[in-house]
Amino acid sequence: MIPPDPRLSSTAAASEAHESGPLFGLLAQFSSDTELIEATHTLYADGYRALDAFSPFPLEDLSDALHLRRSLVAPIVLGGGILGGISIYALEYWVNLFAYPLNVGGRPLHSWVSFIPPAFECIILLGALAGAGGMLLLCGLPRLNHPVFEVEAFRRASTDAWFLCVQSEDAQFDSEMTRQSLLNAGAQEVWDVPAIEA
């Protein structure tokens, strides 16, 4: 039996309320970015994989601590750019040579030099659009709600608070054991995150 921890008392009521329902995971708050990064390292070393960390601005060390793989955004942007460039050039070629050939001052129908400006613009346009769409897709956005928003203190995550979430889908997840690991890693407070209907 784990000795009662004074830091747990404040969450006792909250956890009781959700006792019947399934858990999405546990959310722990840390006092600084360095502590959050350290705790993330610790939990990752403990074997937890379904982890997510939250910080009010990007921290490269945090991505490293979570062992995130290289983002796929770059190849998506490249793909979009190539698609945009090839398709507009093909369109220009087809329009000027086949669909609507016009003799302008005897210049060649395939005036590739003047096909470049639209092609350049479309490379940028499709690259940017694909990148924006791809980034949102990779992030699982847009969505209207998420379980972590159920925790009131999470509001501070967008100003000056540091959170780590261990999701219940993790093979190692055990509500009590995981809570203790988070506290041992230096969490100031740990909340139950109830699962909500998507």
Binding site: A53, P58, V73, A74, V77, G131, A132, C139, L141, P142
Partner: peptide, 28 residues
């Protein structure tokens, strides 16, 4: 905000894209 929740996983993709967009916007 499209459900943005300051997750490290979000920032990871977001940072990359922001730089790439800057790279695309410069010649543009």
């Amino acid at each position: 905000a499209l459900g943005w929740r300051n997750s490290a996983r979000h920032w990871h993709h977001y940072q990359k894209l922001y730089l790439l967009l800057a790279g695309l916007a410069t010649p543009l």
